[in-house]
Design a protein around this nucleic acid. Structure first.
Length: 903
RNA sequence: GGGUGCUUAGCUCAGCUGGAAGAGCGUCGCCUUUACACGGCGAAGGUCGGGGGUUCGAGCCCCUCAGCACCCACCA
């Protein structure tokens, strides 16, 4: 495939269709979740391109601040160095090198997956243009009072040594202990309960509920804080829950967000007793201890003083962890930059509420609102080196100046060179630049052609896991700075899990690399891959065992198209998508089936189907066209509401079970028979080629490689040219009108064949064996259908010319298949064991009788007749008549068999 | 502590505004039929998690219980 087909032209008059890639982190390689996402995007994009839209799929990557910095720091650690050894500039340079080296890997993977992106427009969140957008927006938000700097309790990762936003913290229920400690002595003492004993060194008050009668006498007094000799006040604050613990809380404003608020309300001092590494700084015996060492040490000291009361209770409570490294997050008082999200979030909520942005599936909108409507201010400063440096400068007096560059700041504020300015050391949260992606990639704030052609984008395709991180923030920023939503629709898909429903993760060793599905991988190589560089090496044997069990032969090469079809088929509305290679294998088989069907078509046609629009189609030809139309209609509906599983199923079922199983077999009857004339053969060839060619176009968005390859061959075989299926028109259901007459006739033909086949199958009659058939009670329509379709019926049912019984003539004893009033009899003739047929008849009769009873009971209900729609009543009535006929026929046959058995 | 989703054939999942239970894989027969054994033909297999309700009619709507996931949350 040639890249030129995917290059978008901003000047094209065609209607635009735009999708921005959710930019993967430069650090890694594409995992299976990306592959899913890309498959869905690519299917949408390829279809629109075929439909003539001015299509842009823009590729790119995210600099992924913390994640990337951590990876490069780990690399350095292997060399025994830290980023501080290199210094900021050299370190950042090193990260750029990393990007240059590994960023390309992702692009290679995208090629392999068949992503039809516009390679000329690749972007990176740290590109110059995008950085410009970041600085511009920072300044505007600052000028509008929507960015501010303040001392707040923030989530702090003592390992990454940076602030984190709320959503970068994962909470888990961890086992801790709840310790009750007595503060003060005698009557004026109070017992507080805490899970964080070590922070008591920073306590500056005890708080109780204002209405708690147990403590009213203490409010306003002070108690002695053990181990410190300090006296701290007892304050009344409504935040305290009198029901919890003793109803008294220690207050540590510098190390707990709640306490910080209490401290503000009561004007309490904040005492920082731990540094940014989580090491105790309070002078005294605990100074220099890590927070987790300090806890038992402080506890022991309290015990020694007899301060610990009652037992220490095991206590499970939610603890925050850094989502990058898993370290327990430390709430920490520090000076950070924040975005005031209130007004932005309100607008972002409204855009979805009033339908300017539509979310698929719709249920997810509720989750979006929950988050957007109750959003805390966003901490955007990070104490990292890799990222967009905050465009703020300080003078000696600590005054803040914000601008896109130092020169701009100096000019704007009339600051001469004699005034020293120091730039803020921090960088921005990586999601800050991601939030601008839909327009920063188009050259904003410049009024570019791309911006006017491709913004707002058409649809955002992503997993629900980053709705909060990313989606809501893009809407916030898009609305604020472009006045437009960044995308009109959001298609949210589920997350891939392994066969057992487990999340795929390196540490579990259950990761499957999408490219290993495409190319295959041997067992040993797979094990090596899964166990390399494990954080916990002791997991290695378990991972190896599990892998050997799951993939005893390794993973076979299934090809990109099979993987893509599997992904599309998984795109249901559920949020957990279990990935199973057996399913990919199914689609690999499908591709093989398609390939072979195409081989048959090209062999059969042999250049003879070119032209000839004035073809007189036979009933089978009309039928398959009608069915094709139905399949296309289903596919179309699937695309319309982002149900690509429907699309896959519609095309899969049509291809395999209608085109291959029936039409191809029917076509052989015509093409390989001397009874058919040239016009009939031509009609069949024409239909074979036409149907397959259309089908390939329909399949192309899902299976780009095989559809292109076969399409070229089929076109060549039909003597027609065609540059590429990528730009061929996407088929429309409307071009293949339903043909009820042909459907009715073919239904009869298929029923006839299926009836005989059922007898053959159940009686184990070899396919090569031609059998005799006798028809009883054939009506005029039956005779007409039979006469017209004799060739089909004979070949596909494997029968001789049927003998038609005169009315009233005694029928031979045999196995029977029913088709309306028509009875198809296969005489015993040594083929059929009478008792087997007797059993078969009895079983069918039981089933028919059960159905009949149910329907009759329903029909007998007067309320049903009154309330049910006429078509339901009519349908039931017809079915009852059918069943009655059928039961009669079955009974008659059963009687004859019985008679035979008694002889 | 709130909230959401799931529970349909042995496994993985579809099932549209309530009107005769479906697919793929697996299983069991028969078959080297000249596109395909990565195949063809046939078959078996379900009280739609339990209980209650609304309705002429419920896999689908309501209530409730149970189990399993997940998300959000500054209660020590």
């Amino acid at each position: 495939m040639q890249a030129g087909y995917f290059t978008a032209d901003a000047d094209s008059p065609a209607p635009p269709f735009t999708i921005m890639i959710p930019p993967p982190n430069v650090t890694g390689s594409l995992h299976i979740g990306h592959a899913l996402d890309h498959t869905l995007i690519d299917a949408l994009v390829r279809r629109r391109r075929m439909q003539g839209y001015n299509t842009l799929w823009l590729p790119g990557m995210d600099h992924a601040g913390i994640a990337t910095q951590n990876v490069v720091e780990r690399e350095l650690a292997k060399e025994g160095a830290s980023r501080h050894d290199l210094g900021r500039e050299a370190f950042v340079e090193r990260v750029w090198q990393w990007k240059a080296e590994y960023g390309g890997r992702i692009l290679g993977q995208m090629r392999k997956l068949g992503d039809s992106v516009d390679w000329t427009r690749e972007r990176f969140t740290m590109d110059e243009g995008l950085s410009r957008a970041v600085q511009t927006i920072f300044k505007r938000l600052f000028d509008d009072g929507l960015i501010y700097r303040a001392d707040r309790i923030i989530n702090w990762c003592p390992r990454c040594m940076t602030a984190l936003s709320d959503i970068e913290v994962d909470h888990s229920d961890d086992e801790g202990e709840l310790v009750s400690i007595r503060y003060g002595d005698g009557d004026s003492s109070v017992v507080v309960a805490t899970t964080r004993v070590e922070t008591m060194l920073g306590d500056t008050a005890v708080a109780v509920h204002p209405d708690d009668p147990r403590y009213t006498h203490l409010v306003g007094t002070t108690v002695e804080l053990p181990l410190t000799g300090r006296h701290i006040p007892v304050v009344a604050d409504p935040h305290v829950d009198p029901e919890f613990g003793t109803g008294a809380v220690k207050v540590t404003p510098a190390h707990d967000p709640d306490d910080f608020e209490i401290g503000r309300r009561h004007d309490l001092p904040s005492l920082t007793v731990m540094d940014e590494r989580g090491v105790v700084t309070a002078s005294g015996p605990f100074e220099g201890l890590d927070r987790f060492e300090a806890r038992p040490a402080v506890l022991a000291a309290l015990r020694a003083e007899g301060r610990v009361v009652a037992e220490i209770r095991p206590y499970v409570h939610a603890v925050g962890h850094c989502d990058r490294c898993g370290t327990t997050v430390e709430p920490r008082l520090s000076l950070q930059w924040f975005v005031k999200v209130g007004p932005l979030a309100k607008a972002a909520g409204d855009a979805v509420r009033d339908g300017r942005v539509r979310i698929y599936p719709g249920q997810l909108a509720a989750r979006y609102f929950d988050w957007v409507d109750d959003m805390h201010d966003w901490c955007i400063s990070r104490q990292l080196w890799w990222g967009h440096r905050i465009p703020a400068w300080y003078d000696a007096a600590g005054r803040v100046y914000v601008g896109r560059s130092e020169a701009e700041v100096r000019a704007a504020h009339g600051l001469g060179e004699e005034i020293a300015l120091r730039r803020d050391e921090d960088v921005l949260d990586t999601w800050f630049s991601s939030a601008l992606w839909p327009f920063s990639t188009q050259g904003w704030p410049q009024p570019t052609a791309a911006m006017s052609a491709y913004y707002p984008t058409s649809v955002l395709v992503t997993g629900f896991d980053i709705i909060f991180f990313w989606v809501a923030r893009m809407i916030m920023m898009g609305l604020k700075f472009t006045g437009e939503v960044p995308f009109r629709e959001i298609y949210v898909h589920g997350l891939i899990r392994d066969h057992d429903g487990q999340k795929m993760s390196k540490s579990k060793g259950n990761v499957i690399d999408p490219l290993d599905i495409v190319d295959g991988i041997g067992l040993e190589a797979l094990i090596a891959k899964r166990t390399a560089g494990l954080m916990q090496p002791q997991m290695k044997p378990a991972i190896e065992r599990a892998t050997r069990k799951q993939f005893p032969q390794g993973i076979a090469a299934f090809g990109t198209d099979a993987l893509r079809m599997c992904f599309a088929s998984l795109a249901t509305q559920s949020r957990d998508l279990r990935f199973d290679t057996a399913r990919v294998e199914g689609y690999r088989n499908f591709c093989n089936k398609l390939w072979n069907a195409a081989r048959y078509v090209t062999i059969s046609v042999d250049g003879a189907a070119a032209g000839g629009d004035a073809v007189e189609l036979g009933v089978a030809d009309r039928w398959i066209r009608s069915r094709l139309g139905a399949a296309l209609a289903r596919a179309q509906a699937g695309f319309a509401d982002y149900r690509l599983d429907t699309v896959v199923n519609a095309l899969y079922e049509f291809t395999w079970h209608e085109f291959c199983d029936w039409y191809v077999e029917l076509s052989k009857t015509v093409l390989q028979s001397d009874d058919s004339n040239a016009a009939q053969k031509h009609a069949v060839r024409h239909t074979l080629v036409g149907t397959l060619e259309t089908l390939l176009r329909a399949l192309h968005p899902l299976a780009p490689f095989i559809s292109e390859e076969i399409w070229q061959r089929v076109r060549a075989a039909a003597g027609a040219a065609g540059e590429t299926v990528m730009l061929a028109p996407y088929p429309q259901a409307a071009d293949f009108a339903a043909d009820p007459e042909a459907e009715r006739e073919m239904a009869w033909v298929r029923q006839f064949i299926l009836g005989v086949r059922q007898i053959r199958g159940e009686m184990d009659i070899a396919p090569s064996r031609k059998i005799d058939v006798v028809l009883q009670d054939a009506g005029a329509a039956d005779l007409a259908f039979l006469a017209r379709n004799m060739g089909f019926v004979r070949r596909l049912a494997g029968i001789e010319v049927p003998r038609i019984l005169e009315p009233g003539r005694p029928a031979p004893v045999g196995a029977v298949a029913l088709l309306g009033s028509l009875q198809i009899l296969v005489p015993m003739a040594g083929l059929i064991e009478p008792s087997a047929e007797k059993e078969r008849l009895a079983k069918r009769q039981r089933k028919a009788e059960t159905d009949l009873q149910k329907l009759q009971a329903k029909a007998a209900n007067a309320d049903f007749a009154r309330n049910a729609p006429a078509e339901v009543v009519a349908r039931d009535r017809a079915r009852i008549a059918e069943l009655q006929t059928e039961i009669g026929q079955l009974q008659a046959q059963a009687a004859r068999i019985r008679a035979l058995l008694q002889q």
